[in-house]
């Protein structure tokens, strides 16, 4: 059969560079930190055969998870990541829906250009887009200078290095992910339904809430997950825009690894983060599945 090499090459690649590394993370999360290279024990001694394997398994424990549960730094980091991701998802929806709606109402010949304008920022570096806000939000930054010039404020506002800056960063970065699925749902919407509702005595606002919003629901749900899932594990945005009081789990993991060099705890943090992410990921997949079936 000729198809086997075709399957085997990408399959083995992903097994070796995606699945195996992940199993190693799980294994190290069950190990103990040690002052050695690599900085954890036990290491599997294959030469010792079965006895070595039994010895290895008996030394694994859930100590690091118990540590995560007992130290409230991690609790607060997970909870505040969830909170930041949720609030920014709602904010992104509030900004993204009107834009997607405007695009769907726009004349047909404008739409490819508008699409292009939404997609283009996605191609430019996330790091640069986040950096752009550093220059705008800092105390002597563009925004504060502008507001002081207008006379709205007397003293510069402290925005950079606060949670608000993190919200702005996440909304800005993930806005295209919210706009595109909502736009594609709204674009398919049959305009005659709204006309029918208006003919039957609905006001425009009422028709919007009764027809447009429910029919664009799959797009709204998809958009929310596409913002929420990456926002939860975000590192660059809280690290550059947030302050010392901004706790996000991606940042904690990074610091645990690079600054504290505690690999077992960093691995346990990663495993728990993934367990939390499974719920939104499964819900997202189900929403996609439903849409695909509805499309058939």
């Amino acid at each position: 059969m000729r198809k086997w090499p075709l399957i085997a090459v990408p399959y083995l690649w992903l097994l070796l560079l995606f699945l195996v590394p992940f199993l190693i993370v799980i294994k190290i999360s069950l190990s103990d930190a040690a002052l050695s290279i690599p900085p954890y024990t036990p290491t599997l001694d294959l030469a010792a055969g079965w006895a070595g394997l039994r010895q290895f398994l008996s030394e694994l424990d859930f100590e690091n998870y118990a540590f995560l549960a007992s130290d409230d730094l991690y609790w607060r980091a997970y909870l505040s990541s969830l909170q930041i991701a949720t609030v920014s998802t709602v904010l992104t929806l509030m900004l993204g829906f009107p834009i997607a709606y405007g695009m769907a109402c726009a004349p047909e010949e404008w739409r490819p250009t508008l699409m292009m304008l939404v997609i283009l920022p996605f191609w430019t570096s996330l790091l640069i887009r986040v950096y752009a806000w550093m220059g705008i939000l800092s105390t002597e930054g563009f925004l504060n200078n502008f507001l002081q010039w207008l006379g709205v404020i007397d003293a510069p506002l402290m925005i950079l290095n606060t949670q608000n800056a993190v919200y702005i960063g996440i909304v800005y970065t993930y806005l295209p992910f919210m706009i595109l699925p909502i736009y594609s749902a709204l674009e398919k919407l049959d305009g005659s339904l709204i006309e029918a509702a208006e003919d039957l005595g609905c006001t425009r606002t009422k028709a919007f809430w009764l027809i447009t919003v429910p029919l664009s629901r799959p797009g709204i749900i998809a958009g929310c997950f596409l913002v929420f899932i990456p926002a939860l594990g975000e590192f660059v945005i809280p690290s550059l825009l947030g302050g010392s009081e901004t706790l996000m789990i991606g940042k904690v993991l990074w610091e645990e690894f690079f600054n504290n060099r505690d690999w077992p705890v960093a691995s346990a943090v990663a495993v728990v983060l993934l367990l939390i992410l499974i719920i939104p990921i499964v819900l997202f997949q189900r929403n996609e599945q439903k849409q695909r079936e509805a499309g058939k």
Binding site: P21, V25, F235, W254, L274
Partner: peptide, 9 residues
């Protein structure tokens, strides 16, 4: 999340 991909690799 990128931090997990990076760490595992």
């Amino acid at each position: 999340p990128e931090v997990i991909t990076g760490l595992s690799l």
